[in-house]
């Protein structure tokens, strides 16, 4: 769409009189409305989706690494405090494997909950 009023604006502001200038501007306006000679690849959409999925995998891996690191640090800290405060004997209370199972179970549940609320709700891959 050649915008006549804008061509006349060029004429008045540049002080043009020769009609050939109008033809030149019409040509420029027409050419400016043509798409550049570049096309994205056929599988562009697929590539974007693949990149997003890859980013999400990395994000989830980092999240789990961080969470397991945190859980490990908590358990280690807990054991260290127990040993420091009450001596090795205090650990006898935790010899019962059920107690450790409960602690680890709670930690895994927390991680799963955070994973669900912080990551999965905002990813493309969970459908």
């Amino acid at each position: 769409m050649v915008r006549e009023n804008e061509i006349y604006q060029h004429f008045s502001q540049e002080g043009l009189k020769d009609p050939r200038h109008k033809e030149t501007y019409e040509f420029i306006f027409r050419e400016l409305e043509k798409s550049p000679d570049f096309r994205l690849s056929e599988d562009f959409i697929g590539n974007v989706i693949s990149r997003l999925e890859k980013l999400e995998r990395v994000k989830r891996r980092n999240f789990y690494t961080l969470m397991f690191g945190g859980v490990f640090a908590l358990i280690t800290g807990f054991v260290a405090i127990m040993v420091y405060s009450f001596g090795f004997e205090s650990m006898a209370r935790f010899q019962n494997i059920t107690m450790w199972g409960v602690i680890i179970g709670v930690m895994v549940a927390i991680i799963q909950f955070l994973d669900q609320s912080l990551i999965k709700k905002r990813t493309l891959a969970h459908i």
């Binding site: 562009f44 959409i45 989706i49 997003l52 709700k121 905002r122 493309l124 459908i127």
Partner: peptide, 15 residues
């Protein structure tokens, strides 16, 4: 989280 919706969004604004 609809993958197809994002595909559609790309399709609309790819140009």
């Amino acid at each position: 989280g609809e993958r197809d919706a994002f595909r559609e969004l790309i399709r609309r604004y790819q140009r």
